[in-house]
Amino acid sequence: MRDVAEPPRPGLWPVTLRAVAFRAGGQTLIDGLDLELAPGALTCVMGPNGAGKSLLVRLIAGLIAPTEGTITYGSAGAPAKNRIAVVFQRPVLLRRSAAANLDHALKTYGMPRAARPGRIAALLSEAGLTAQAGQAARLLSGGEQQRLALVRALAAEPDLLLLDEPAANLDPQATAMLEALIRRASSEGVKVVLVTHDRDQARRMAEEVILLHRGRIAERAPAQAFFENPKSPEARAYLAGRLLL
């Protein structure tokens, strides 16, 4: 983990989306979205299935280009390498052992070979996967795969961590473990954007909530305000379990 006292590396912030639209197959999937992300509060992104949450994650990560509008990172048009880490909704792990997956990531992030084994052991233990180090990553359980994907993302020591429903398949114990890892990263200065369907998880984790509906931001509010006094009709309907796409 990066030292807490270390000042944030300049350049990435703020991440700004201006009038961003994403269209595909004749449909407007992200619709004129304005959003600014800065270091600090842990942001939960919520919204019904198909609202565009995963698309938003991929847009922010620079993996897809907006059809309209601009995304800037500080003054740059693309994020610098390794500053943004993503855990996808369906984590893709290499056809290698758990440890080799981390080794590949650390090598990509520029860590010298000699320093890697120690770091790999530390990451595996954070994920509670020490015993599975040599096992094929793709044969790990769904929850184990998600934990591995999370520590692989953390290994980048990113400034912005985008998590797309990282706890979707986890049992309560593994969820607690994962949330602890996320909280620690957040408290160490990593900006976390956590996409989740789980309202209880959002209540536990969020300092700020963004509600996405039909590719637009229906509401963005501090967590407490969002849950206790939602302003938008969409948020009220969502919290009452009645918001559909």
């Binding site: 991929r58 993996l63 390498k81 390794n82 880490a85 993503v86 893709v92 990531a105 990509t108 980048a156």
Partner: peptide, 12 residues
């Protein structure tokens, strides 16, 4: 097709 997005996200 399976790895591309993940590898790009990692900056490979």
């Amino acid at each position: 097709g399976e790895y591309d997005e993940m590898l790009r996200a990692m900056g490979v």
